[in-house]
Design a protein around this nucleic acid. Structure first.
Lengths: 117, 117
DNA sequence: ACCTTATTTCGTTATCTGGCGAAATATAGC
DNA sequence: GCTATATTTCGCCAGATAACGAAATAAGGT
């Protein structure tokens, strides 16, 4: 029961749904998500810890960055069902589509670090 | 997006998951759920309004009682997916099983009204 | 009309949540 | 070791949430 409510709580915030749908496209570091969501890095970090705690995403350190990715079917009993449902509900959502488009255009090395604009 | 988060918020409380799983068994009036959940009737009523607002359940007045039931596939785009997932996650949960057993034993006319114990 | 039972609405309270900025931690390059 | 960048943790605040009891509303039986 606890497991289930933890997952649904994790899914009950629009910014966290945006994160999951972005991670469906590719692995992302925190600063990329900060850029797209327009939230403070501390806020995004907290959202990520909630999603990680629900076993929906995993983090992998890579140099100075932490790459986040969706859990795989092996790693989570629920991820497949969850993402299927999110696709069904959100694949055509304006904001989700916008995020996805922005993702294809942006590059981590432009967003993070030197070019701060 | 709003629709999705409304549904996941509705699903993020253990008492509301218990309600949905109970309604999977049969239609119930508020006082039956009050009895099983051991919550104040005002609290249960509020939970029901949250589930109704997410289009997961419907209410039907019947004499002095209000019967609640799960939405049908015709009435909700999401109910089928949601309940399939809850079954998967909770069908063997101790509390859910306990609620289900209690449901088969109890009778509305014993719970509501005269026999208040 | 009156009383009982069922349910909802209202007002209150304690706790949880999402947001921020600042400070702490970690890594890379000089 | 120092600096810059990336991320997390901490402390705070405003608004949401779950709980309760009491009052209001609805419907049935006498």
């Amino acid at each position: 029961m606890r497991k289930a409510t933890t997952i649904y709580k994790a899914l009950s915030d629009p910014n966290r749904l945006r994160i999951l749908m972005m991670l469906r496209e590719k692995r992302l570091c925190v600063c990329e998500m900060v850029d797209i969501l327009s939230l403070a890095n501390s806020t995004v970090s907290k959202h990520l810890s909630i999603l990680r705690n629900a076993d929906l995403i995993l983090d992998e350190k890579s140099g100075r960055w932490v790459n986040y990715r969706l859990a795989t079917t092996d790693e989570s009993d629920d991820i497949e069902f969850v993402m299927a449902q999110l696709d069904r509900q959100l694949a055509n959502d304006d904001q989700i589509v916008g995020d996805r488009e922005k993702l294809t255009v942006t590059d981590r090395f432009e967003i993070c670090g030197v070019a701060s604009g």
